[in-house]
Write a protein that binds this DNA or RNA. Sequence first.
DNA 1: GGTGTTGGCCAACAAGCGTTGACCAACGGC
DNA 2: GCCGTTGGTCAACGCTTGTTGGCCAACACC
Lengths: 209, 209
Amino acid sequence: MLAYMCWPTFVGMTDTGTPAPPRRSDATRTAILTAARERFAADGYERATIRAIARDAGIDPSMVMRYYGSKEGLFAAVLDVNLQLPAPEGLDPRRMGEILVGHFLDLWEENEVLTVMLRVGVTNPAGGERLRGVFRDQLVSLARHVCPDPEQAPARAALVASQILGMALTRYILRLPPTVALSREEIVAWLGPTVQRYLTAPYPAPYPR
Amino acid sequence: MLAYMCWPTFVGMTDTGTPAPPRRSDATRTAILTAARERFAADGYERATIRAIARDAGIDPSMVMRYYGSKEGLFAAVLDVNLQLPAPEGLDPRRMGEILVGHFLDLWEENEVLTVMLRVGVTNPAGGERLRGVFRDQLVSLARHVCPDPEQAPARAALVASQILGMALTRYILRLPPTVALSREEIVAWLGPTVQRYLTAPYPAPYPR
DNA sequence: GGTGTTGGCCAACAAGCGTTGACCAACGGC
DNA sequence: GCCGTTGGTCAACGCTTGTTGGCCAACACC
């Protein structure tokens, strides 16, 4: 019924050098994880019920509890991925905006996990914290390598996040029709210079009110 | 306990020329509406329970049902506001980005309703539809008056929405600390030119991949 | 071939939800 | 001063949720 493409990481599993041996239940574990990812992405945390996830995976709800402990454990397992931002070294800093926008579009298209993170981060405190963590650890440190004054890195990263998350919000969550209709190339052409400016343009003198 | 500052619009009330006469229960009605707005803004639709709203308003949950019919009716009453975008006539089209960003910041600061709409629109289908409607009716028609080719208005409005909603998301929903730390003037100075470009700059030739 | 372990289902639990209807107290017109 | 109307509380219903423990079948090992 479902395709099992990756080995899940089990909650509470201590990493003992050798990865855990394959088990007969791996297919079920992965089916649960896949169904959970889809449900969380589509419905958010509260409306994605364990019963619905189990139904999608074709097994009993109690199996979810046995393999992932609780609904929160399952959610943590779904979010257990790290998005690979490009290392800033070796990239043309003048095309950083363009590169970053393209990379984020790829991430969003290929992986439902980011949709989960954003949709859940809006209503669920744990999801929000996770989103803040990703922002803090990845985007700020990237900005620190690119922008002129490292002290401005958090503010510049925040501006970049506002544009990139805003595009993700309108395109993948709210699905505003004109936003969905934009091609990848158009988005890169419009947003790339914006992100580039947020990263490297001189800090503007605020407008007088 | 709570301040009642405005008269609520009652669900199902048909507008018969003269506004409905004041009733003894108006204070309670408004208290419910205020508490509901705060709860919906803070917790989203599913986690904001009628019982919690009633507790905040200091009355019994059944009163909420009596006055607003159902949870969805209450939610509709909370969203029953129309945000007043500036009429494009008489405004300097070259400063439109700056004006628009400032106006949206004002709207967001003064009114929790937009927070409700965004937070609920992410998980609740009805909220999402409402958000799409506001976008379609207000932002696109504004873009039509400002941008060079009216046919491009939806795409340009979508880009503007991505930046403005993204700022709202990171500042008022996710509360990324560096975003919250930005002053109103900094935000206008950074985002104003972006929005201006999305509205009036010539449509760019997409980057080759 | 018996036996312990694993994978899975079933039925039920307590809690919380939106919602309902019966009931009581205070007000207002005659 | 009476009585219909209004504002409000209380207790309960039916349902869904996350979660639990008992039970059965299939496998693995000696």
